[in-house]
Structures are given as C-alpha cells and as structure tokens.
C-alpha cells in the first residue's frame, strides 16, 4: 500500500542558516533540517541512533552531519551512519516552492 504523505511548510528558505541545522517540531516528531553549502535542503530525524544526540546542533560538512554528543558521522541524504559506526536515521523528502521550504512526512 502506498503511504500517503503530508507536506508541512517549515518556513522561508532564506531564513535557514547556511551550513547549519535547525530543529523543527512536526506533530510529535522533531526533525533536523539542514541547508547545505550547495544550497540543498535536507531533513532527517533529529535523534542520533547512538544515544539520541540532537543532530541539528552537529557540525555539517558536505553531505554529512557529525553528532554533537559523540561525533558519529551521518549522511543527511540517505540517513546512513558512516563507518566505523553503524545504523541509520529516518530521512524526509524536502521541496522548495516560492522560496518556501516543505518537508514531507507520512500521513497518520
């Protein structure tokens, strides 16, 4: 069965700081939204699979964010934890329309 999604507007593209993350609360979830230096917007679950670190506060390098708690390296496009650690986080699709940023979350 196809999972239906809901587009949630999270704000103005220009308001997102470059090369940094931002925590966004959507219903009961917290999502980390990153504006990468190449201009792309990425969104992942804001919770490190290691011990729940707040990924939106991590250092961002290229396609990766480094968890602020114990430095796990996580790809913000596919959500995969990089070696030597192991794991993954939920990713969310993002779109930009009229300078507005949307995150697609599964419909309940």
């Amino acid at each position: 069965m196809e999972q239906t999604v809901r587009k949630v507007r999270i704000g103005n593209y220009d308001d997102l700081p470059v090369s940094l993350g931002k925590a966004v609360v959507v219903e009961d979830k917290e999502i980390a939204v990153f504006r990468l230096s190449n201009g792309n917007i990425k969104a992942i679950e804001n919770k490190c699979p290691h011990r729940g670190g707040v990924l939106s506060e991590g250092m961002v390098s290229g396609e990766h964010v480094f968890c602020p708690l114990h430095d796990w390296k996580i790809n913000v496009s596919d959500g995969l934890v990089q070696a030597p650690d192991d794991g993954c986080v939920q990713t969310y699709k993002t779109t930009i329309e009229d300078n507005q940023v949307y995150v697609e979350v599964p419909e309940k």
Binding site: P17, V18, L20, G52, V54, E57, G58, M59, V60, P68
Partner: peptide
C-alpha cells in the same frame, strides 16, 4: 560559527538530553 563545535557556537554546554 559553522566550524565551531555546538558548545562554542551556542556558548553553552550541551548535555546528553539536548
């Protein structure tokens, strides 16, 4: 600021619960 570890970026110490 983007090259700073969170504590130095926010000028406070992050704790394990965020």
């Amino acid at each position: 600021r983007e090259s700073r570890f969170v504590n130095e970026r926010l000028h406070a110490n992050i704790q394990k619960d965020g």
